[in-house]
């Protein structure tokens, strides 16, 4: 991807991200966040991570933000639009959290084993990886080695393979967590219903 496009998408991501915070209208904020997600997804695409990029759009921009918008629309937003005084404590806390996060990202990315390499100095050796993959024997998936040998990066397949072999346990835990939260949400909304009906 030409550097020009990289800067364009960075600008979109950050600009609309900023707009989320400063926009007066909540609908504008929500939509800006969705556009920011799309910009972020294009940055993922530029790293050849098509699967993650597409999931970013599919899950966050396409489903989560639509639900956000849905809720915002159901509320009365006139009072929000009128505006009020800025909450100093919230702004300071936000800046501090953002600072800590950037320091954390900087330290971690400085310590990664490939932090001194760039895409020019360390090109992807797909054919080699394909041969290695085939040598793995029993657990090798034929489609992955076929793709690698053909010079394509099977990002979705590699991600799935890693998720379901190396991180299988973690995946189960996350799944259980989601199940618990789903059941919790259903239980909470059920109880509310009953109270409402008993009151009326």
């Amino acid at each position: 991807m030409p550097p020009l496009l990289f800067y364009l998408f960075v600008l979109i991501t950050l600009g609309f991200g900023l707009n989320v915070v400063i926009a007066r209208n909540p609908v504008t904020s929500a939509l800006s966040l969705a556009v920011s997600f799309v910009g972020l997804a294009s940055l993922f695409l530029s790293l050849d991570a098509y699967f993650i990029g597409v999931l970013q759009v599919l899950v966050y921009a396409g489903a989560v933000m639509v639900l956000f918008l849905f809720i915002i629309m159901l509320m009365d937003i006139k009072s929000e639009e009128a505006g009020g005084r800025a909450n100093m404590a919230a702004i300071i806390a936000g800046v501090v959290v953002a600072g800590i996060l950037s320091v954390q990202v900087a330290t971690i990315s400085g310590k990664l084993p490939f932090s001194d390499k760039s895409t020019e100095t360390a090109a992807l050796k797909l054919a080699e990886a394909g041969a290695q993959w085939e040598a793995k024997g029993k657990e090798n998936l034929p489609t992955i080695s076929r793709d690698l040998k053909a010079g394509e990066l099977p990002d979705a397949k590699l991600m799935g393979e890693t998720l379901f072999s190396k991180y299988a346990f973690h995946l189960q835990v996350v799944g259980l967590l989601l199940l618990v939260s789903t059941v919790g949400v259903v239980a909470l909304s059920k109880r509310d219903n009953k109270e409402a009906s008993s009151q009326s």
């Binding site: 597409v54 999931l55 759009v57 396409g62």
Partner: peptide
């Protein structure tokens, strides 16, 4: 000719809800 084919279509189509 993307390797994620139909997922791309669904992702963009889900933006149509907006």
């Amino acid at each position: 000719d993307l390797s994620v084919g139909p997922l791309y279509t669904f992702a963009i189509a889900s933006l149509g809800v907006y």
